[in-house]
């Protein structure tokens, strides 16, 4: 006699349950506090405070991508007035959205 094979629905529901459990595990994993990461984050924050850093070192290819918050809005088009921005990061990194403090048109950007 051939051994009884499990019904396809049993397999499918088992697979779905497994996938749901894995999904729930990711949510749980994200919610678990990480002491070591917290300590590292505090150390980074202390370094930022000590050096007065203003930006993340994510894109180091050009000065306006290395410190986007410190660059003026025209620096991406500095070569000539109609020059297109040529660093690839420019397509990932939107220009900073500054609020105008007082001088609406007194000075550029």
């Amino acid at each position: 006699m051939r051994p009884m094979r499990p019904r396809p629905s049993t397999l499918a529901l088992l697979l779905l349950m497994l996938a749901t459990a894995a999904f729930a595990a990711t949510l749980l994993d994200a919610a678990v506090p990480r002491e070591q990461r917290e300590a590292e984050l505090n150390a980074t924050r202390a370094l930022v405070a000590r050096l007065g850093l203003t930006d993340l070192a994510l894109f180091t290819e050009a000065r306006y991508t290395r410190h986007p918050s410190q660059a003026d809005l025209h620096s991406a088009f500095q070569d000539h007035p109609l020059a297109l921005e040529h660093f690839p990061t420019g397509s990932l990194l939107p220009p900073p959205r500054y609020e105008i403090v007082v001088r609406e048109t007194a000075l550029p950007d």
């Binding site: 930022v48 405070a49 850093l53 203003t54 993340l56 410190q70 550029p108 950007d109």
Partner: peptide, 16 residues
């Protein structure tokens, strides 16, 4: 991380 950065940075501009 950047919550610890300075409250205000003052730059000087000359001709933009």
């Amino acid at each position: 991380v950047l919550a610890a950065s300075p409250e205000v940075i003052l730059q000087r501009l000359v001709a933009g």
